[in-house]
């Protein structure tokens, strides 16, 4: 398994929306390298004929009835908002808006 580069970590940090300094990227790249070496063993036993499990219990078709239930009040909905204007969440300008 090839090591993970600082550029790759920087790309992942962008995808994950986490600002990182160069030194953080370097430190993390080293740690991820050792973690990835440790976890790569999963590939040894993951044969094509083994089906993946995503849910621990084999439940299916869990639905609810199409019934309206009470919503939060707008005060409750906005109670944790860092900023608000007229019952809307106020956020910094959204770039790339279409």
């Amino acid at each position: 398994m090839a090591g993970i580069s600082r550029d790759e970590v920087a790309h992942l940090a962008r995808l994950a929306r986490i600002e990182m300094s160069d030194s953080e990227l370097d430190h993390l790249a080293t740690q991820l390298d050792s973690i990835l070496v440790a976890v790569a063993s999963v590939q040894e036993v993951a044969q094509a004929d083994v089906s993946p499990t995503s849910h621990p219990l084999p439940l299916t078709n869990v639905t609810r009835e199409d019934v309206v239930r009470p919503s939060l009040s707008s005060e409750e909905a906005l109670s944790g908002a860092p900023a608000q204007v007229e019952d809307r969440f106020k956020v910094p300008q959204i770039l790339g808006e279409e």
Binding site: R64, V67, V68, R69, P70, S71, L72, S73, S74, A77, L78, E86, D87, R88, F89
Partner: peptide, 19 residues
């Protein structure tokens, strides 16, 4: 279970799930 009606006052048809 939040209602889907069009044109409600802002953030009055929300709950922990859809927020």
């Amino acid at each position: 279970g939040c209602a889907t009606e069009f044109g409600a006052e802002p953030n009055t048809q929300t709950c922990p799930i859809c927020l």
